[in-house]
C-alpha cells in the first residue's frame, strides 16, 4: 500500500484553476479547467480500472429493464385483460388499465372450472407424487453416492438416458400396463412410478441427490458406523438432515412440474376416453372453452359469452396458486439451483 501512494501522481491546484500534476516519472503536466472536466466526464462515463463507467452501468440497467418488461409482458397483459369488461375490450382507447375493477370474469371462470374442487385435486395430484419422489430419489441417490458396486456407471448412464428419452415411447405400453393392473384413472398411476424412481423428471432429482450426498464427508458416516449405526440409520440420521437444500429444491420443482403436467395427467389419471373423477386446474384450462360453453348453457342466470377477458381470468386462476407460492417462497426458488450443486463447487 505505501508503495502505491508513493508512485501516485502528485497534483497541486494553481491560482488560475488549472492543475499541475507531477507524474511518477518526474514529468510535469499542466491541465486547465476544461481538460479536467473533460477527464472527469470521461471517467464518469467510461469508468476506470477500479470503478465501472456510468455508461456501461446505464446500458446494462436499460437492457435488463427492457428485457424484463418484455419477459413479463404476457403476464401483465393477462392480468390487465382479465379485469376488463366487454366494453373495455372493444374500446380502442383502453390499453392497459380497465375502466372499472371488474371481478365478474373471475366469478364466471371460477364457477365454470369448479375452482375449489379442481384446486384441491390439483394439490393432491401434485403433492402426493412429490412426497413419493422425495423418498425414492433420496434413497436411490444415496445408494449411488455412498456405495461402490459393479455396474454403477451403467446405472448412471441409464438414468441420464431416461432423461433424454421422450416419455411418448414408453407411454402406450405403460397405459396398457396400468389398465391391466386396474390403476388407470386413479392417483396410483402417478404414485407407483414415482415410488420406483420413474416419476416425471425423476432423473434430475436422482442426480441432484447423488451430487449432494457425495459432498457429505465420508468420515462423518464412518464415525456413526463405529458408534453402531447401520447403513439405514446413518442414512436418515446423518445424510438426510444435511441434505436440506436438496430436499427443498426437489420438492419445489417436483411440485411445480407435476402441477403443470397436463399431457400425462390427462392420459393416466384424468382419462382420455372415459373421464375419471380426477382433474386439475391445468386440465380444466385445457378444456376451458368446452367447459365454459357447457356452463353457459346450463346456468340459470344470464352469462356472457366467452371472450378474451374470461379466457385470461381462467388462465390467471389456474396459475394463481403457483404464483402465490412463488412469491412466498421466492428465496428458495431462486437459490435452488445455486444450492443443488448442479453447477459444481
Amino acid at each position: 500500500m505505501p508503495k502505491r501512494t508513493q508512485e501516485q501522481a502528485e497534483s497541486k491546484v494553481r491560482d488560475d484553476g488549472s492543475v499541475q500534476i507531477v507524474t511518477p516519472s518526474g514529468e510535469i503536466l499542466i491541465k486547465d479547467k476544461k481538460q479536467i472536466t473533460k477527464d472527469k466526464i470521461r471517467k464518469f462515463l467510461l469508468g476506470t480500472k477500479e470503478q465501472e463507467g456510468f455508461l456501461k452501468v446505464f446500458i446494462i440497467y436499460a437492457l435488463l429493464i427492457c428485457i424484463g418488461f418484455i419477459y413479463i409482458y404476457p403476464i401483465l397483459h393477462m392480468v390487465s385483460t382479465s379485469f376488463m369488461t366487454l366494453d373495455d375490450l372493444l374500446d380502442q382507447s383502453i390499453n392497459w388499465i380497465p375502466s372499472s375493477f371488474n371481478l365478474d370474469n373471475y366469478k364466471q371462470a371460477a364457477t365454470s372450472m369448479d375452482f375449489w374442487g379442481s384446486f384441491g385435486k390439483s394439490i393432491i395430484l401434485a403433492g402426493v407424487p412429490t412426497i413419493c419422489n422425495l423418498i425414492s430419489c433420496s434413497v436411490i441417490g444415496y445408494g449411488l453416492a455412498r456405495f461402490e458396486f459393479p455396474g454403477k456407471k451403467v446405472v448412471l448412464g441409464i438414468i441420464i438416458f431416461t432423461f433424454i428419452l421422450p416419455s411418448q415411447i414408453t407411454m402406450i405400453p405403460t397405459y396398457v400396463l396400468y389398465s391391466n393392473m386396474g390403476i388407470l384413472g386413479t392417483i396410483w398411476a402417478f404414485i407407483l412410478p414415482s415410488l420406483l424412481g420413474q416419476g416425471i423428471n425423476a432423473p434430475i432429482f436422482i442426480l441432484i441427490f447423488w451430487q449432494f450426498f457425495r459432498q457429505v464427508p465420508k468420515v462423518l458416516i464412518e464415525a456413526a458406523q463405529i458408534d453402531g449405526a447401520g447403513f439405514w440409520k446413518s442414512f436418515y440420521r446423518i445424510s438426510i438432515p444435511s441434505a436440506a437444500p436438496a430436499i427443498i429444491t426437489v420438492s419445489l420443482f417436483s411440485f411445480v412440474w407435476y402441477w403443470n403436467e397436463s399431457y400425462l395427467t390427462q392420459m393416466y389419471v384424468a382419462g382420455v376416453t372415459v373421464k375419471s373423477g380426477w382433474t386439475s386446474l391445468i386440465i380444466q384450462l385445457d378444456q376451458f372453452a368446452t367447459n365454459y360453453s357447457k356452463y353457459a348453457t346450463t346456468a340459470t342466470n344470464a352469462v356472457t359469452n366467452i371472450n378474451e377477458s374470461i379466457n385470461m381470468s381462467g388462465t390467471m386462476l389456474s396459475i394463481l396458486p403457483l404464483l402465490i407460492m412463488y412469491f412466498v417462497l421466492q428465496r428458495y426458488f431462486v437459490e435452488s439451483i445455486d444450492r443443488s450443486g448442479i453447477t459444481g463447487e
Partner: peptide, 13 residues
C-alpha cells in the same frame, strides 16, 4: 422476474 416463467410454462397456459 427471469425465473418467474419456470413456474408458469405449461402447455395449456
Amino acid at each position: 422476474i427471469f425465473f418467474l416463467p419456470v413456474i408458469i410454462v405449461s402447455g395449456p397456459i
